[in-house]
């Protein structure tokens, strides 16, 4: 008998009588002022969020807020004049010196500040993790109240890799002192287009 068969047989023998799945349909958030809630929560987790009119405003804010002499990468064609377009097929190691990545987020979640990204909007899976600073652009109407609506929206998902990112990377492993910028980005900025 293979290990696989041994394990499956032991599981079958030892698992108790089937218990039903609960209905989780009643869990949902309220729709009131999700944008304001999102911005407030995102700030408490160490991020910065701005409500803006369009990508032109984003561009000028990026120029003010970041060192544009360093390497900026993006998946947004509209940003091409201030950033290089990310190439999906090249070695991910080549992005090690990206100072700022500007990418589109599918949507974000008001209750926890997290933005949902798949590799399609990341350009490369490594991008939102390896950059020193992460900027995400999303639309105000895409913000959902809780993770329940979020997963409803994601559905089964046609992606190879996807992730929620909710703020700059952090650690409190040394004496519970909060330090932003553990291994991933030192800052995260979300531009919400009205």
């Amino acid at each position: 008998m293979t290990t696989r068969e041994q394990i499956l047989e032991a599981v079958l023998k030892n698992q108790p009588e089937s218990m039903p799945l609960p209905d989780i349909g009643m869990f949902k958030g309220g729709d009131d002022d999700t944008v304001r809630k999102y911005i407030d929560i995102f700030k408490t987790i160490g991020g910065a969020a701005y409500l803006v009119d369009d990508l032109e405003v984003v561009k000028s804010m990026v120029a003010e807020q970041f060192d544009t002499t360093k390497r900026i990468a993006t998946t947004l064609p509209e940003m091409q004049d201030i950033a290089e377009l990310i190439a999906p097929a090249i070695d991910p190691h080549l992005y090690e010196d990206v100072e700022l990545a500007i990418i589109r987020g599918h949507f974000s979640v008001a209750e926890n500040g997290a933005v949902w990204l798949t590799e399609e909007v990341m350009g490369q899976r490594i991008i939102p993790y390896i950059c020193q600073h992460l900027a995400v652009v999303l639309t105000a109407e895409s913000i959902v109240p809780t993770l329940h609506e979020a997963y409803e929206r994601i559905g089964l998902g046609d992606y190879g890799f996807g992730g929620f990112i909710g703020g700059p990377s952090k650690t409190a492993d040394i004496e519970q002192a909060l330090v932003l910028g553990a291994h991933g980005p030192l800052t995260m900025t979300v531009y919400i287009i009205r």
């Binding site: 929560i41 987790i45 991910p92 979640v109 209750e111 926890n112 500040g113 997290a114 899976r125 993790y129 993770l147 998902g157 992606y159 190879g160 890799f161 996807g162 992730g163 929620f164 990112i165 909710g166 703020g167 700059p168 990377s169 952090k170 991933g184």
Partner: peptide
């Protein structure tokens, strides 16, 4: 925390 900073969904190899 309301959620961990990274909740990564790994599905297919790169």
């Amino acid at each position: 925390q309301p959620i961990t900073i990274y909740s990564s969904h790994y599905k297919k190899p790169r």
